[in-house]
Amino acid sequence: MSTIVTVTSGKGGVGKTTTSASIATGLALRGFKTAVIDFDVGLRNLDLIMGCERRVVYDFVNVIQGDANLSQALIKDKHTDNLFVLPASQTRDKDALTEAGVEAVLKELQHQGFEYIVCDSPAGIEHGAIMALTFADEAIIVTNPEVSSVRDSDRILGILQSKSRRAVEGREPVKEHLLVTRYSPKRAHEGEMLTYTDIQELLRIPLLGVTPESDAVLHASNQGVPAILQKDTPVAEAYLDAVARFLGETRPLRFVEYEKPGLIKRLFGGK
């Protein structure tokens, strides 16, 4: 059996693709055969974040339309074993992603023995986003500590609870996880930013993790390496923790408390 994990947020630019790449990589690092699918038809970017953009020959829509088979379209990740990327198509025809087509591809991945299928949702609540969440077993809601992101997350939760297959068929609901990204402990401490507990209180779903605002994310995307592989950076550690919690382990939250810089740090500078 494979588990379908949808990474979604409603709002754009909050870190869905960064998170999809990192969570998928994290699951593969744990030895699970994992596929990560880009649902953002027309605006594909997962390939760039994963660093496989030059190896894209066939895409998701090609497979749905029968122009290629799944094995031809799946790109084996060069950083991590057990990990495969299914890129989105750059076609402008958004309706190319049919429900039956998506279902068939997911079934085929399941058939090929994939244990986790991570669906990277596009922003918004249009067709692509709906297709990405329709078949979800679990969902990671990526939220920034900022009003518009929190509101949109709540909206997408409502859609998940009404439009997913699990909801429509009255099965056990999609398991929801909150991931707060781009968090600044200092600003939260100073009352300039919603705290992660504020966000959790507002959205009322279990917290999967908090990843700090970090320069490492841009470095990672510049190079086409998932952020979780930026060794020894807080953001990579936070993603590793999130993956561990996703798999049922208990890990204390890190990088969420603000530590006042000591005297020496203040005198001699430093970040």
Binding site: E146, V150, D154, G158, G191, E192, M193, T195, D198, L202
Partner: peptide, 23 residues
């Protein structure tokens, strides 16, 4: 009042209203 607490109060109101409206 810190701006974060203003944000939280505003979100509490709007989210409650939108949930009521949707459901």
């Amino acid at each position: 009042k810190s701006t974060a607490s203003v944000a939280k109060e505003r979100l509490q109101l709007i989210i409650a209203r939108e949930r009521a409206g949707l459901a």
